[in-house]
Amino acid sequence: MADTHTAHTDIDTLIRMLDAAETMPAAARLRARSYELLRLPPDATVVDVGCGTARAVAELAEQAAHAIGVDLDPAMLAAARSRFPDIDLRVADAADLPLADGQAHGYRADKVYHVLPDPPAALTEARRVLAPGGRIVLLGQDWDTVVIDSDQPDLTRRIVHARADTIPHPRIARAYRNLLRDTGFHDVDVEVHTAVFTGATMLPLLVGHATAAQQAGAISGDEAEDWVSEQTRRAQDERLLIAIPMFLAAGTR
């Protein structure tokens, strides 16, 4: 029972952080830019892979597209269905999508490729479900270049790199362009946007970084506690700063 409670707590914390991040004006503009790069024709079918709580699916549906949200996490899909009961959501793996060959005109994946077991297989599947001329858009952060203001830069550097090393593909976002080209997509472009966070809502992200670094043996328990205390004080004093490079890549089938 304790493990189940912890899992629910982790999901709830993640959803709160996602909500805080996604409701920021800069995040809304970045999502809008990703929709623009899809170049969807009227009444197009678009699939959002790793849709999470499905904010993007709902926004795409408002653009008169047939938007399909796909995710493997039942807790995320449950939250999505409670928020947007009328959208099309499906449980599926990124490498085995519930779409026919060439069924989609657009494919979007936001902050998901860094955790996929086999990103090239997912891109091959994306190419399968896209019609000729269809567009793919990938959006994600580079975990190894997260910028965190701190009075302890050396310790912060160790924490950031140690946390990145716990991610299956921490630097995949910087490779989006080449991955798309290697899979046969053309007209491939990449943009880099910076997500900036200054609110205390993002403190759980920093606690997670410190915890992961301690568990990996990169820092001691005392160092983790000291660093989290500093970041907590910064949040209380409105001096917190996190900047995350976001890579936005798009290509044509």
Rank of each mutant, 00 (worst) to 15 (best):
D3I: 09
T6C: 00
T6M: 07
T6F: 07
T6D: 07
A7W: 00
D12S: 11
D12G: 07
R16C: 09
L18C: 06
E22N: 15
T23R: 12
M24E: 02
P25T: 08
A28N: 04
A28I: 14
R29A: 11
R29D: 09
L37S: 08
L38A: 07
R39V: 07
L40N: 03
L40G: 04
A44G: 10
T45P: 04
V47Y: 04
G52C: 07
T53Y: 05
R55F: 05
A56T: 13
A58T: 05
E59Y: 10
E59H: 09
L60F: 08
E62I: 08
Q63C: 10
A64L: 08
V70Q: 05
L72T: 13
P74H: 00
A75R: 11
L77Y: 02
R83Y: 06
D86F: 05
D88V: 10
R90N: 02
A92K: 12
D93Y: 01
A94L: 11
D96M: 03
L97D: 08
L97T: 10
P98W: 07
P98G: 11
L99T: 08
A100N: 12
A100W: 10
G102S: 12
G102D: 14
G106M: 05
G106R: 03
V112E: 01
Y113N: 04
H114R: 01
V115F: 04
P117D: 10
T124F: 05
V129H: 05
V129K: 01
V129T: 00
L130G: 01
A131M: 08
A131F: 04
R135Y: 05
Q141K: 06
Q141P: 13
D142S: 12
L155P: 03
T156Q: 08
R157H: 11
R163K: 13
R163T: 13
R163C: 09
A164K: 05
A164M: 10
A164F: 06
D165M: 06
I167E: 08
H169P: 01
P170E: 04
A175Q: 15
Y176I: 09
R177Q: 02
N178W: 02
L179I: 05
R181V: 14
D182M: 08
H186T: 15
H193F: 15
A195S: 10
A195D: 09
A195H: 11
G199H: 12
V207K: 13
H209G: 09
H209E: 07
H209S: 02
A212M: 06
A213N: 05
Q214P: 00
Q214Y: 06
A216M: 07
G217R: 05
A218M: 02
S220M: 05
G221A: 11
E223D: 14
E223P: 10
D226L: 15
W227G: 08
W227N: 04
E230L: 15
T232N: 14
R233G: 13
R233Q: 15
R234C: 15
R234M: 15
L240K: 11
L241V: 14
L241W: 14
I242N: 02
I244L: 08
I244K: 02
M246T: 14
A249M: 01
G251D: 09
R253G: 13
